[in-house]
Write a protein that binds this DNA or RNA. Structure first.
Lengths: 342, 342
DNA sequence: GTGAAAGCGCTAACAC
DNA sequence: GTGTTAGCGCTTTCAC
């Protein structure tokens, strides 16, 4: 391994001077700087991050905790997109990502987050898919390491979060339907009462009210976010004999299930009945006719999280932000324009 | 920060003894070990990984290079599954993952992989989605850092790879069709000639030959792995007026496209014509009737990569393996059993 | 502008 | 069994 001393020797200077050059300090003469730079280049020198970390107590690494539960229909499918844009932003500032792994052998002691973050000297932390009732969070949040989480409300002196604006999302859905002439709208909610699920329902209610539409309690159902859940929910709706003109689903999977029953019962999607999903999962692009849906702005979430975290790291007195990222309406063919007949 | 000296002081021993305890050395008396352990526990002490890394020249980190190109229909969708099982295995051995970010500001100099790996002192490297014509690979492979890549043939004194056995995959598809009485089988190949694409075609050819089926050149087409590619390819097939009894597609997207044209032309999938896809993308589970496909064993790929890498790290003289992970046949409803009528 | 030297937290001979 | 000490590669005062 080639060190700072090798460079110093070749350049006929001390290691301190080389260090100054590495760190772009101004107090080095043009000549020596140029000479040192040339030698570093020639030898393909790279400062060792570990040694630097020890000396500076900074690692130029962002620690990432991902709670890797399968079947987390909501957050999991987006990890890749969010992380990809996050990585791009922090990468430009010289940070690499340290993904903390779960050691299944080790006892799950408390304060795991804080201890492991300290152990690796990470400069900041990104939390992803962490459950809100996680006991270990408290100490992490209070320990002073800059911290941003995705879709989890995290409050602390140096901790904030970014989330997709789920209220705005279903508002979009309702407004779109309303503009197309729909007034009788059903909603299939999340039976688990997850935060995003709650917010999506909240947005539906608010939007309906502010547009002057009455909410028919019989048209509010709950399902388990899955295809079969949506299938069953709409089965009951059909059995009730009292159909709305449109159905907003809290997830695309449920929308797909809804579509299946409806078609089996002779409804033509986008004509006899309208559907709006939520998430724009990849499967949706393969389904005919296309289902209109609400798409979370995943890239933007990653970008926002990265910038917020960088700000917290760079600026000791930055106030931790709470960021709501507005989603987009993706129009396909599942919404019928009732105005055509008015 | 609480250090080894704090522990030593409290325990009335030297830092060396504490270090011995940390590293589980046998040459410490039961009494002092217990005392030290108790104090470490009480103070919530965690050895600093950076300092350790500097002293031992090992970081207990696996470096991960992911080439994050969008539209890489083949490798990208599996990253999460593969990485998730990889992480679990190496995590149990105390390794965390260091994801190298792409600094868009920095000039893309040569040997980037090696330099960055050295800079961070990673103990081993996982490559994912890296293009095989990447110039920087050569030096990395020769520099002696243990290295395993996914779906990229990497050869070196300490470098091997794991890949899904694509030849075996399409062999599975053909054997299944053959068992169901099919002899006239078409194949939609990858127009880009990617390695997986080539192998899938190769497996098709071999299987057909060894089962004594003749390959009709008119039934071999190429498409761009996409839905529309499959659509167009089968459109031509139909236009030719000479239909096979089954179609094997080198990707699920193409299979879905094929299904669409076929249905539009009055064919009933799984009755008039049979289809087999490849990959088992998530969208497939939403499509009716279900398309039979070949599923890569993603978890197993991650597991195998992890174990191979750990072996290379632990055992100086381990020979770098090349591992083919056999995929599975996922049976749905798109294959017709011709034997029912014989 | 540049150098000498101490120190970051830990490991690993080598002594006793 | 345990302590002493010299690094690991870099940064950073403090002199000059």
């Amino acid at each position: 391994m080639i060190t700072i001393y090798d460079i110093a020797l070749r350049a006929g200077v001390s290691s301190a001077t080389v260090s100054r050059v590495i760190n772009g300090r101004p107090d080095v003469s043009r000549k020596t700087r140029a000479a040192i730079l040339a030698i570093m280049d020639e030898l393909g020198y790279r400062p060792n991050a570990t040694a630097r970390g020890l000396a500076m107590k900074k690692s130029k690494m962002i620690g990432v905790f991902i709670y890797d539960h399968l079947h987390s229909g909501l957050v999991h499918p987006f990890l890749q997109d969010v992380l990809s844009s996050f990585q791009r932003i922090v990468g430009d500032e010289g940070y690499d990502l340290l993904i903390f792994t779960n050691n299944s052998k080790e006892v799950q002691i408390e304060n795991q987050y804080e201890l492991r973050a300290r152990q690796r000297d990470v400069d900041g932390i990104l939390l992803f898919g962490i459950a809100r009732d996680d006991k270990q969070l408290d100490r992490l949040v209070e320990c002073g390491i800059p911290c941003i989480s995705i879709d989890l409300d995290l409050y602390g002196p140096r901790a904030g979060y970014v989330t997709s604006d789920n209220v705005a999302g279903s508002t979009l859905a309702v407004q779109h339907l309303h503009a197309k002439g729909h007034r009788q709208i059903a909603f299939i909610a999340d039976i688990f009462n997850s935060k995003p699920g709650q917010d999506r329902f909240k947005g539906f209610q608010q939007a309906m009210r502010s547009l002057g539409c009455t909410i028919n309690p019989n048209w509010i159902t709950q399902a388990d976010f899955s295809e079969s859940g949506g299938y069953d929910a709409v089965t009951k709706l059909i059995a009730s004999g009292n159909m709305p003109t449109a159905i907003v689903c809290a997830s695309d999977s449920m929308a797909i299930g809804a579509k299946h029953v409806l078609e089996e019962n002779g409804f033509t999607i986008g004509k006899d009945i309208s559907i709006v999903g939520y998430d724009d999962i990849s499967a949706l692009s393969y389904i005919k006719p296309g289902i209109t849906t609400i798409k979370q702005n995943r890239m933007e979430m990653g970008r926002a999280a990265a910038q917020a975290l960088l700000e917290l790291i760079d600026n000791e007195s930055a106030v931790p932000p709470i960021l709501f990222i507005p989603p987009d309406l993706v129009m396909r063919q599942s919404v019928h324009d009732l105005n055509e007949f008015s």
